[in-house]
């Protein structure tokens, strides 16, 4: 049986104004996926709708994790932001590609690649999700601060 830890740690950095990078440590499964979802939504609601999840330290992510990511993507879109992923574990990558979710969610090799990616890509993936609301540069609080 897989040894699954039931805690999830999430730390947030703001490497650049308008971008929040959440580093996730732990396994994302049916137990921890709600934590991932609620913590990520908090970040978005605090005025950082451009969010990237760094999954380099996630050992395991199942379909519960995929569900959480899709939920976060919806909220980020509604807030005029975007969600991108970095260092996606193999199994999740297979799910993203099998389910076509990778066509809506930019996937980067590392968190550094997210930071280097142009901020102008704004509210959607580089391939641009034409249905997903026009990218805006104002968050719920009017302007983005780098904090």
């Amino acid at each position: 049986m897989t040894d699954v830890t039931h805690t999830l740690h999430l730390t947030v950095q703001h490497p650049r104004p308008g971008l929040a990078v959440a580093t996730i440590v732990g396994d994302v499964d049916v137990q921890t996926a709600p934590t991932l979802r609620s913590r990520a939504l908090e970040i978005i609601q605090q005025g950082h709708p451009r969010l990237a999840l760094d999954l380099a330290q996630v050992g395991f992510c199942d379909s519960s994790g995929l569900s959480a990511i899709i939920g976060i993507w919806h909220v980020a879109q509604e807030a005029g932001g975007s969600l991108s992923l970095a260092a996606v574990p193999d199994r999740l990558m297979r799910m993203l590609s099998m389910t076509g979710v990778d066509s809506l969610l930019p996937v980067h090799a590392t968190a550094a690649d997210v930071i280097d990616s142009p901020p102008a890509s704004g509210g959607s993936s580089p391939r641009s999700c034409t249905h997903g609301g026009t990218p805006r540069c104002t968050g719920p609080r009017g302007t983005w601060s780098g904090s």
Partner: peptide, 12 residues
């Protein structure tokens, strides 16, 4: 190109 069902309005 078939996408997850029920997740995205623009799914193809």
């Amino acid at each position: 190109g078939g996408m997850l069902i029920g997740a995205f309005p623009q799914a193809s």
